[in-house]
Simulated assay, not measured.
Amino acid sequence: MSEERSRPVDPQADDAERAAESALRPSTLGEFQGQPRVSEQLGLVLAAARNRGAVADHVLLSGPPGLGKTTLAMIIAAEMSAPLRISSGPAIQHAGDLAAILSGLGEGEVLFLDEIHRMSRPAEEMLYLAMEDFRVDVVVGKGPGATAIPIDIPHFTLVGATTRAGLLPGPLRDRFGFTAQLDFYDDTALRRILMRSATQLGVRLSTEAAAEIARRSRGTPRITNRLLRRVRDYAQVKADGTVSLALARDALDLFEVDDRGLDRLDRGVLEAVCARFGGGPVGLSTLAISVGEETDTVEEVAEPFLVRQGFLMRTPRGRVATPAAWRHLGLTAPVGAPGSGDDLFS
């Protein structure tokens, strides 16, 4: 075994690496890039609450994964100088689960519920009363002898996050005092995030390389930082640690991220639609089987990006590849291939 492979792990270096990774998240609204409208509106809401000496209104954050909803929840807690409690909708399957969390909160504490649309209905109905009146009713006993015991809870701020706002019932959505829709980031914002992250990680990153990584990041900061870490690894092993444009391209090609941001799954879906099914239409379940993935993975991970890039269309008869998809794969669409006819939407 070589000396490099047998080298023991340095605990101090590992701690420093973890500290650098955690520092990638911005800690203030001023550092939060790419969502200027949301940052300005949320900053106003929080500043007004601080001036009144009151707890901030409940906040609902919606948008695709990786855009900064968890980071914003942490920033809200920091801006209000309040503790943060983190949980998720799928973890709260019974009203008692929620009652235990709410009764354990401190005055002014921020409760972050990720994927809030996946919370159980009984817990959701308990949350209505907690958000409005800061009270929960705990039912003791069963049947005709059951008794509801009201329990006052401290004033708190609920920050709910969802990737599917349409699944939230209206009564719950209406109880949030501020709702923010996070949008995908443009390349300029992603470049700024990259340069900040590179500084935190100690990576020497050229502006051209930053632009290349940003262009392949699908408008998502989480993907941006993930690609930066992989490019950093490539630079440390294959070069002197400096990330140039050529090195960034080589690294991203190695990790199968093409010049439009498509990864292995995305290209697999497009190749299946074009090469195996003649451009479509093809049903979701058939498409998922052909690429060896679950239907939820294809529908929620690959499809949104492919549709947004204009490579795939959802039609009443199934998924259809567009002319842009054929061109991106370097294929020639056969005569009569679907993708442009109005009959698809009839």
Score class of each variant (00 low, 15 high):
Arg5His: 07
Arg5Gln: 11
Pro11Arg: 10
Ala13Lys: 14
Ala16Trp: 01
Ala16Asp: 15
Ala20Pro: 05
Glu21Val: 09
Ala23Gly: 04
Ser27Tyr: 03
Gln33Ala: 14
Gln35Met: 02
Ser39Arg: 15
Ser39Leu: 01
Gln41Met: 11
Val45Met: 09
Leu46Val: 03
Leu46Lys: 03
Ala47Asp: 11
Arg50Asn: 05
Arg52Ser: 12
Ala56Leu: 04
His58Ser: 12
Val59Cys: 10
Leu61Glu: 11
Ser62Leu: 07
Pro64Ser: 13
Thr71Val: 05
Leu72Gln: 00
Ala73Arg: 03
Ile75Val: 12
Arg85Ile: 07
Arg85Thr: 13
Ala91Glu: 15
Ile92Asn: 05
Gln93Met: 12
Gln93Gly: 15
His94Leu: 10
Leu102Gln: 04
Gly108Thr: 08
Gly108Gln: 06
Phe112Arg: 00
Leu113Met: 13
Ile116Leu: 14
His117Asn: 14
His117Gln: 14
Ser120Thr: 01
Leu127Glu: 04
Leu129Glu: 15
Leu129Asn: 12
Ala130Val: 10
Met131Gly: 11
Asp133Thr: 09
Asp133Gln: 14
Val138Gln: 12
Val139Asn: 02
Val140Met: 11
Lys142Ser: 15
Gly143His: 08
Pro144Phe: 00
Gly145Cys: 07
Thr147Ala: 11
Thr147His: 13
Asp152Tyr: 00
Leu158Thr: 06
Gly160Ser: 11
Ala161Trp: 10
Gly166Lys: 06
Leu167Val: 02
Gly170Glu: 14
Leu172Asp: 10
Arg175Glu: 08
Gly177Leu: 07
Ala180Phe: 08
Tyr185Gly: 04
Ala189Lys: 01
Ala189Asp: 07
Leu190Tyr: 08
Leu190Pro: 06
Arg191Glu: 15
Arg192Leu: 05
Ile193Gln: 01
Met195Phe: 05
Thr199Gly: 09
Gly202Asn: 02
Val203Arg: 01
Ala210Asp: 00
Arg215Ile: 00
Arg222Gln: 13
Ile223Thr: 14
Leu228His: 04
Lys238Val: 11
Asp240Gln: 04
Asp250His: 06
Leu252Val: 05
Leu252Trp: 01
Leu252Asn: 03
Asp258Met: 02
Asp259Ala: 11
Asp259Thr: 12
Leu270Cys: 07
Glu271Gln: 15
Ala272Asn: 02
Cys274His: 09
Cys274Ile: 15
Pro281Asp: 07
Leu284His: 12
Leu284Gly: 15
Ser285Glu: 15
Thr295Gln: 13
Asp296Gly: 02
Thr297Ser: 10
Pro304Arg: 01
Phe305Met: 09
Thr322Arg: 05
Ala325Tyr: 05
Trp326Thr: 04
Thr332Phe: 00
Ala333Phe: 10
Gly336Met: 08
Pro338Trp: 13
Asp342Ile: 09
Leu344Gly: 06
Leu344Asn: 06
Phe345Lys: 08
